[in-house]
Design a protein around this nucleic acid. Structure first.
Lengths: 192, 192
DNA sequence: GTGACTCGTTCACTTAAGTTAAGAAATGCG
DNA sequence: CGCATTTCTTAACTTAAGTGAACGAGTCAC
């Protein structure tokens, strides 16, 4: 499991054994059961998540309905908004499957960054990359129809469609579960 | 004009006179005429933009049609995707109004960062903040209807509705210009 | 095993966005 | 100024998403 983390980090910086050990000594690794809520609306946290195995999702409860807006799977990083802006969270985070995560609070971040300035560089590279990527995803969302978005997801993240309940996928695609059902039927019909 | 930039930076780090002068010596400031295209699809660039005055937009040309997906106004920062991933740009960037920008290429960034490590910290803080903010914007987009999105924009960025052509606003809201027109008429009718 | 829930699908109906086209209003340019 | 172009609005029609309801399949708890 450690190697997944180190492989990920090695895309940005190279770590010495000393640094690796410092990182491991923080006790980052956590097993989390399916359904566990990691963060609730209104709560504050300092924890960021890195998914080693499994899947977590971000969702809102609007008019009593769950609206899932993001999924994070293997090798994805999630720093909640409330960690950045110090305000209560606008959304929930929960486990879609039994998962293994690294959970790092900002104290650890501060400690690692002061000992090893490299980590700051990595965090900068990572967040710049994620920002630019998310910009592209957002643009794609704006410029495509629900059907195109579904077909696109089928291409880019086919695993998600298998491992995640349809009604969560629907709001992720910006539509209602019934519309997703219909849209899928429509696509099947076209193929035949 | 320099003070706008320094005020912005001071939200993240404090600069000495030496550092301020080093920054000014880079010759960052540029006046750009309305309509100027700063980046074309397929091009590569190392330039990032900070808007001191005016407005720039990101757009795609899909099936011969312009699709505007983002506007950057006073105090906004835009680092194109192609600066991060070194691939040709997927989108265009152009000036909506006569604008004053700072344009900084990554060589300057490298130079400033090596002389003054503080800048790295600032860049990290900034991109983390923008990433989290954009996540919220994206979520809001997914969970609201075009009409709600328009009303929301009216609240959050009323200036945009004044200074930007409707057809660009429409695709920014994820709809066609005709739908925006109709939607506005619908809202006016409700009020009366 | 039975009843309560959740989940996905289907249907009929409503509502709003896409499409195509036309014309009015505003803007830009020679 | 006047002509051309762009921008915005309106309208009629098509298409697809939202809504409310019902049903069957699967899951969970007792």
């Amino acid at each position: 499991m450690e190697n997944i983390l180190f492989d990920f980090i090695s895309k940005y910086i190279s770590l010495s054994e000393v640094e690796k050990n410092a990182l491991l000594s923080l006790g980052l690794f956590h097993s989390v059961k399916k359904g566990t809520v990691l963060l609730k609306e209104g709560q504050k946290t300092q924890d960021s998540f890195f998914v080693l195995k499994g899947c977590i999702r971000v969702y809102y409860i609007i008019d009593g309905e769950e609206k899932t807006t993001a999924f994070y799977t293997e090798m994805d990083v999630l720093t909640p908004h409330c960690v950045i802006n110090k305000a209560p969270s606008e959304y929930f985070i929960s486990c879609v499957e039994d998962s293994i995560l690294t959970v790092s609070n900002s104290d650890m971040g501060v400690e690692m960054n002061s000992k090893f300035p490299k980590f700051d560089i990595m965090c900068r590279m990572l967040s710049e990359e994620l920002l630019a990527k998310q910009r592209i995803d957002f643009d794609k969302f704006k410029t495509t129809s629900p059907e195109q978005r579904y077909l696109n997801l089928l291409q880019k993240r086919p695993d998600l469609i298998q491992r995640v309940p349809q009604h969560q996928l629907a709001s992720y695609l910006g539509i209602k579960p019934q519309s997703l059902s219909r849209l899928r039927a429509r696509i099947l019909e076209k193929k035949s």
